[in-house]
Amino acid sequence: MSLSSITPTHPAMPEGALLSVRDVAKSFVMHLRDGVVLPVVANVRFDLFPGECVVLGGPSGVGKSSILRMVYGNYAIDEGSVLVRDPENGEVRDLGAGDPRLVLAIRHDGIGYVSQFLRAVPRVSAVEIVAEPLVSRGIDRATAILRARDMLTRLNLPETLHGLPPATFSGGEKQRVNIARGFITDHPVLLLDEPTASLDAENRDVVTAMIGEKLARGTAILGIFHDQPVREAVATRTIDVSAFSARKAA
C-alpha cells in the first residue's frame, strides 16, 4: 500500500479500536427532484472495540441503516472519515475516502455485513452462497461446503433446501442463509442489519447464541436490532442515532 494512502491528518484511532467514525455527514441530493437535498446524519462519531456489541438505536428513519452502509462503503459520505485498521499491517486507513479497491480489500478481510435481504443469484444453491466467502479466502471447496452445511443445519434450515437456490425460500429461510454467510468468516468487525427480523423464537435464540460466540472470540459487532429480547441479550452499549440525525434540524 502506498504511503499517501495512510491518513496522518485524521485524528488517530484510540488504542485498540477496530473502527472509528469521525464527524461523518451524509445527505442525498435528488437530481431528479430539482436537486432537493435530503440530510440524513451529521457529526457521527463513535469507536468500536473488540468483543463489544454496539447497538444503533433510535426510531425508524433516523439513519441507522445509513450509518451501517457508510461503514461498509455501500453509501458514500459527504464529510468526515471512517477509520479502519488494515488487516494486513495494522495501518489506519480511511474507508470513507471512497477508494473502491480499499473498500473491497477491507470487505474481504476486515468488515463483514449481514444485510436485511439476501440478494439471490440465479441458479446458485444456498450452501454455495454460504460457502463462497470461505472459498474466496482460499479454503478448499469441500471443506467450505461442509462448514456451510453445519452452519445451515445449526440455523435449522432443512437439509433438503441446502442444495436449492434461495429464490423460492421464505423470508425467514433467506435470512438464515444470509446470516450463515455473514457468520461463517472471522472478520474482526461484523455489521448486522436486523438479523433476526423475520425469524421465529427458536432461530432467534440460535442467532443470539452465535452473536455471543463471536463476541467471546473478540469480534466487534455494530448492529441494528428492533427485536428487544435479542437486543437486551447481546448489546454491550447503545448509541442513540437521534443525536446525529440531520433531519430534525432540516
Partner: peptide
C-alpha cells in the same frame, strides 16, 4: 465511477440517478 454497489445504491450523478430510477 466507483464500487458497483455504491454507484447503484447511492448514485451521485444526475444521469446515474436517472438510470437507477
Amino acid at each position: 465511477a466507483g464500487l458497483t454497489d455504491r454507484v447503484l445504491d447511492d448514485p451521485r450523478h444526475a444521469y446515474t440517478q436517472l438510470l437507477v430510477a
